[in-house]
């Protein structure tokens, strides 16, 4: 090929221009839109993180439809326990104000296992001021009940001292209203 000096220079310049322009276009396509707004990351990722659907409600969301349980739970010693820990998440139960699933209710020995998760004295890390603990089966023996008893046969699971206090009041060990 026999090109003039000017022609060759033009070809070189055009190729540089095409390469640089193409590079810029590719760069533009590869970098996400919101990249670099706050820093070297996609700012939209913050929006996405905020839009993750919540699965846990609060106790208040459960109390709205379960006023009977709410009344017992709120006035008992267990008022700090989350409903959803024992029964499952709000999202598995209600969607858009409609019931979509039934949450499990613990029964029998499951309840004892669940209680001892927190109330077992054997784990020596539970302080008196934080939680009242019992040793099993010593507690059952001390209270003169069968060793096969489950916790919920004496203690209401939502308000553990509800029946105990009532029984004491009836037998005169405790004054009514105290």
């Amino acid at each position: 090929m026999d090109l003039s000096y000017r022609m060759r220079l033009l070809i070189v310049l055009i190729s540089i221009g095409v390469l640089a322009g193409g590079g810029l276009v590719v760069k533009r396509l590869l970098i996400p839109d919101s990249f670099g707004v706050y820093g070297p990351y996609r700012a939209d990722a913050i929006v996405e993180a905020a839009l993750v659907p919540i699965r846990h409600g609060t106790n208040a969301s459960c109390f709205k439809c379960h006023p009977y349980e709410a009344n017992i739970h709120k006035n008992g010693r267990h008022h700090t326990i989350s409903c959803e820990f024992c029964h499952g998440t709000y999202a598995d139960h209600v969607k858009n104000g409609k019931k979509t699933g039934t949450l499990p209710v613990k029964k029998g020995k499951e309840i004892t296992t669940l209680c001892l998760r927190c109330h077992n004295t054997e784990i020596k890390a539970r302080k008196e001021k934080v939680i009242k603990t019992v040793a099993m089966p010593d507690h059952l023996k001390d209270q003169n009940v069968k060793i096969t008893h489950n916790c919920n046969q004496c203690h209401h699971v939502h308000a553990p001292l509800k029946y105990i206090i009532r029984a004491k009041q009836i037998t005169g060990l405790m004054e009514a209203g105290s």
Binding site: A50, I54, H56, T58, H78, T80, I81, S82, E84, I131
Partner: peptide, 23 residues
């Protein structure tokens, strides 16, 4: 763990804080 960023942005406590029985 994101400290439940999606919950915080809706004014709710993180799930673990919410369920902790002893505070």
């Amino acid at each position: 763990c994101t400290w439940c960023y999606h919950r915080i942005r809706k004014g709710l406590l993180p799930a673990c804080v919410q369920v902790c029985p002893t505070g």
